[in-house]
Design a protein around this nucleic acid. Sequence first.
DNA 1: ATGGCCTCGGTTCGAGGA
Length: 254
Amino acid sequence: MKLATWNVNSLKVRLPQVLQWLADNPIDVLCLQETKLTDDKFPVADIEAAGYQVAFTGQKTYNGVAILSRSPITDVVKNNPLFEDEQQRIISATIDGIRVVCAYIPNGQTVDSDKYQYKLRWLDSLRNWLEQEYKAHPKLALLGDYNIAPEDADVHDPALWEGQVLCTDAERAAFDRLINLGLKDAFRLFPQQPKCFSWWDYRQLAFRLNKGLRIDHILLSTELAQRCSACIIDRAPRKWEQPSDHTPVVATLD
DNA sequence: ATGGCCTCGGTTCGAGGA
């Protein structure tokens, strides 16, 4: 079983790429972020025609998340019940006995902004809610765009990024508190090449120069981590025409 | 280099992303 996450930066623009990537790869569950579509505009028919069921929650212009699945999707929950939020950033569902949580964690903009404080509050509440969810669902997976590079190894130039949003101590501490619930970073369960990233700025030839960050993650509960046999970042779609600035991360469960 | 890019909404620029 393959679980994946991909921030597509507008599903309206990227739908052909999503369908192409699913045609190229045997993905069972795909979590999408930044769909940027209201629910009435969501391309349900195209996704179903590709052999996937889908659950989604969106809004105009910003945010928006979705879960695509080859197996039936049940018990869909939108957002974090403990955190009042107009922004559509979380959707959860049960698929083949696994509780899948798809999250688009706030960016935070800059450390001196209100958006950064919102990000930290949002992460604190996410942790509290997931603590409950984990107890209810031992087979738990949290996939998404975390907007956090957990370690300097996840940053192309740690000195340049030191103290910057996505890399601050407070954000990394929030990530560690998710880990401390008993979740494992699937990518770090395995030996990896250095300088593996999931996002590259559109500017400055960043992708060609591999000036990126690893900010898209798959966290697995202990039970699922024991079943995980691989986790890779697929750079291929980042090389396509008109790419998202993020590329998919894929975990394989046996 | 106080930047460069992309998307959206809605107009021909500003906000937001990361």
